[in-house]
């Protein structure tokens, strides 16, 4: 059973300290929601765990099943079982979705999937997320609408089958139908009980479909309160004001 442990993580961007000691443990079978105001450092946490070069780790540890992720390159982290669905997925011109997915699946599995099998998996994955088959030939994320990009992030999640998924505002920009479709994808991923999810969001909307076990409130670069699902409802009703005041 997998475990992601974030211990006293401190992160700076261009000499500005953003994360000021984050502690969080996500175990297989658990879903954790992180909620917090704009600019509180949620994406910073997600990118820093994934190894984005813009973020400098100034302290702490991130362990996946005891392996120090911070020692690994970005691709090694992904192959170790970490997945980050990005808040703003990047457009990559000239690289087709199908080519990209095949390369990614090959890298993560350590061997090329059989062509027919892959084609089948891809098709059923796309069908399940109501993604038109034509997207396979399009350039990665290029010209995709916000919602289409998010669906493709979940398609990748389902194809790559990581141990721990960090989903950064996967729900934002989705209409009601897309939210349902995407949530179902996340739930399929959770269904085995062997995977952990860290779900970053501003809204309780998605939490009605993807039930969290724990809710963490993020403010000014650290976790300031933790609780069960009921905490999300409280946040929705009362907002973040008390936390931002407290941390200021």
């Amino acid at each position: 059973m997998s475990t992601l442990e974030i211990r006293d993580l401190k992160v700076a961007v261009e000499d500005k300290e953003i994360l000021r000691g984050v502690n969080l443990t996500v175990k297989a079978g658990e879903t954790h929601a992180i909620m917090g105001p704009n600019g509180s450092g949620k994406s910073t946490l997600a990118y820093a765990i994934a190894g984005h070069p813009k973020y400098t780790i100034t302290g702490g540890e991130v362990l996946l099943d005891g392996v120090d992720l911070l020692e690994l390159s970005v691709d090694e982290r992904a192959r170790a079982g970490l997945f980050l669905a990005m808040q703003y997925p990047v457009e990559v011109p000239g690289v087709s979705v199908s080519n990209f997915l095949r390369s990614a699946v090959t890298s993560v599995r350590g061997e090329a999937p059989k062509l027919r099998e892959f084609a089948k998996d891809l098709k059923s994955g796309m069908d399940a997320l109501a993604i038109d088959a034509a997207f396979a030939q399009r350039n990665l994320n290029e010209g995709f609408s916000g919602g289409e990009k998010k669906r493709h992030e979940i398609l990748q999640l389902e194809l790559l089958k990581p141990k721990i998924a960090v989903l950064d505002e996967t729900d934002s920009g989705l209409d009601v139908d897309a939210l349902r479709v995407v949530s179902e994808g996340i739930n399929r991923f959770r269904a085995s009980g062997e995977t952990g999810v860290l779900l970053i969001t501003h809204y309780t909307r998605i939490l009605r479909y993807v039930k969290p076990d724990f809710v963490h409130v993020f403010a000014a670069g650290r976790v300031v309160e933790e609780g069960g699902p009921e905490l999300a409802d409280k946040l929705e009703a009362e907002g973040y004001e008390q936390y931002t005041k407290a941390s200021a």
């Binding site: 994934a50 190894g51 390159s73 691709d75 990005m86 990559v92 990209f100 890298s107 990748q156």
Partner: peptide, 24 residues
């Protein structure tokens, strides 16, 4: 970063992007 974050090693990610650039 995006390609590497999906497990694709740096060298291959780089090749994919260059190939895409010229391939278009």
């Amino acid at each position: 970063f995006y390609l590497q974050a999906r497990g694709i090693p740096f060298d291959e990610a780089r090749r994919l992007v260059i190939r895409g650039f010229l391939g278009q």
